[in-house]
Simulated assay, not measured.
Amino acid sequence: MVAEPRTPCRTPAKDRDGVTNIPTWKFDLLRGHILDIVGAAGPDGFPMAELSAAIAPRLTDDETARLGKLGWHMMAVKLEMEVAGDLARMPKVTPQRLVLPASA
């Protein structure tokens, strides 16, 4: 049996080592939805707390069943996207809002 390709997900938090490896299909699926949702929000950003709820209706029943815990996987992908520079938190805004880097 061939091992399923995996994508490493890092965290931007200082003093936190370690990498979580998730199946690449999950990473790519969630990354695409995050980019669409946050990109559509424009310069005002998208509330991080609403991200899982915004992704859920975009998933097919099969994707939902295969994905497992949406919130956990979404957070791993979101954090990796921050480290990679594909996503940014709006500075000095609470609660957390997400933007694409060109808007940050």
Rank of each mutant, 00 (worst) to 15 (best):
T60K: 01
R31L: 09
T64A: 15
H33P: 00
E4A: 00
P5I: 02
L67V: 06
S52E: 05
M75K: 11
E82V: 13
A84Y: 07
G32H: 10
E50P: 00
P57R: 12
W72H: 11
R6V: 13
A40V: 10
V77D: 05
E82F: 10
L70P: 10
C9I: 01
P101T: 04
I34N: 05
P95A: 01
V83K: 07
L70I: 07
G39W: 05
Q96H: 13
M81F: 03
K14E: 12
R97M: 10
R66F: 12
K78P: 05
T7I: 10
A49Q: 15
L87Y: 05
I37T: 09
A41G: 00
P8L: 01
D15W: 04
P95C: 01
A49F: 02
C9P: 07
M75D: 09
L59Y: 02
S52M: 01
V19E: 13
P23C: 03
A41R: 02
D28H: 10
P101E: 01
G45S: 04
G18V: 01
N21S: 15
K78D: 07
P47K: 09
L51G: 06
A53M: 07
E63D: 14
K14F: 09
V38I: 03
A88S: 13
L30C: 06
W25R: 11
H33K: 07
L100R: 10
P12N: 00
D61K: 06
G42A: 09
R58P: 07
A76W: 13
P8Q: 02
G42Q: 02
I37N: 14
R16P: 08
A65G: 00
T64I: 10
F27C: 07
R16L: 11
H33W: 13
E80T: 00
V2W: 13
M90A: 13
R31S: 12
E50S: 07
E4W: 06
P8I: 03
G68M: 00
P57V: 07
V83N: 03
A13H: 14
L70A: 02
R66K: 15
M1C: 03
T64L: 11
D36W: 01
T24S: 11
T11D: 04
L67P: 09
A41K: 04
